[in-house]
Simulated assay, not measured.
Amino acid sequence: MKKIILVAFFLIGVSVSQAQELKWYTDVKEAVKVSNKEKKPLMLFFTGSDWCGWCIRLQNEVLKTPEFGKWANDNVVLVELDYPRRVEQSEELKKQNNELQHAFGIQGFPTVFFAKGTISKEGKVNFEGLGNTGYVAGGPSAWLAVADPFVKNAGMTETKKTKSKSKKA
């Protein structure tokens, strides 16, 4: 009987930990496709994962918490744009991340941008910015209080566009 209970607890623990694991995309075009399919905005996390103290704090205090995990799974497609100093990256990934850093005017880390993305017929990614933030003291609730309006605006923006298109028709 004890073995059955232990196995049950183990299986529950495994399923809970798998449910909380987040999918972070590094390929922006792939993330945009998922974003459009799921009708969720992108959350672009610009980070120096192995050297930036504030980035590491944001990860530990917010991005690795169950509260954030639930919110992220329900509301956004996560994209990590990393600028490490000690971890090797492919030239393609470095190029993509540098272009995005320039396009968004990133001057400090961490920076988190919320955006909608589209891919043109030529394969170029275009973004519609929804807002940005960085490290916010106070844990996940304080950070989510700042981030949540950007995500809610994504839905409102879509509704306004739909209305304005129907007026033109």
Rank of each mutant, 00 (worst) to 15 (best):
L58Y: 02
L58G: 03
L58N: 02
L58F: 07
L58P: 02
Q59A: 14
Q59L: 11
Q59W: 09
Q59Y: 14
Q59D: 15
Q59I: 09
Q59S: 15
N60P: 02
N60K: 14
E61A: 05
E61S: 03
E61M: 05
V62L: 03
V62T: 06
V62D: 02
V62S: 02
V62Q: 04
V62H: 00
V62F: 00
L63K: 03
L63F: 04
L63D: 00
K64R: 13
K64G: 12
K64L: 11
K64E: 13
T65H: 06
T65C: 05
T65F: 09
T65W: 08
T65M: 09
P66D: 14
P66H: 02
P66Y: 05
E67L: 13
E67T: 10
E67Q: 13
F68D: 12
F68M: 13
F68V: 12
F68P: 13
G69L: 11
G69A: 12
K70A: 06
K70S: 06
K70D: 06
K70L: 04
K70N: 08
K70I: 09
K70Q: 09
W71I: 12
W71N: 10
W71H: 10
W71A: 10
W71S: 11
W71F: 14
A72G: 04
A72E: 00
A72S: 06
A72W: 05
A72Q: 05
A72P: 02
A72M: 01
N73I: 13
N73D: 12
N73H: 15
D74G: 07
D74F: 07
D74L: 09
D74K: 13
D74T: 07
N75F: 11
N75Q: 14
N75R: 12
N75C: 06
V76H: 07
V76W: 11
V76K: 08
V76E: 08
V77C: 11
V77Q: 10
L78M: 05
L78R: 05
L78H: 04
L78Q: 06
L78Y: 00
L78W: 01
L78F: 01
V79L: 05
V79Y: 03
V79E: 09
V79M: 06
E80W: 10
E80F: 03
E80V: 07
E80Y: 11
E80K: 14
L81V: 15
L81C: 09
L81A: 06
L81E: 05
L81Q: 01
D82V: 00
D82L: 03
D82A: 05
D82Q: 01
D82G: 02
Y83P: 00
Y83L: 00
Y83E: 00
P84V: 12
P84R: 09
R85L: 06
R85C: 01
R85E: 11
R85F: 12
R86E: 14
R86K: 15
R86G: 15
R86W: 14
R86F: 12
R86S: 15
R86V: 11
R86T: 13
V87Q: 14
V87R: 15
V87M: 15
V87G: 03
E88I: 10
E88M: 08
E88L: 08
Q89D: 04
Q89F: 05
Q89M: 10
S90R: 01
S90C: 08
S90H: 07
S90Y: 02
S90E: 03
E91S: 14
E91M: 11
E91F: 04
E91N: 12
E91L: 10
E91T: 12
E91G: 06
E91Y: 02
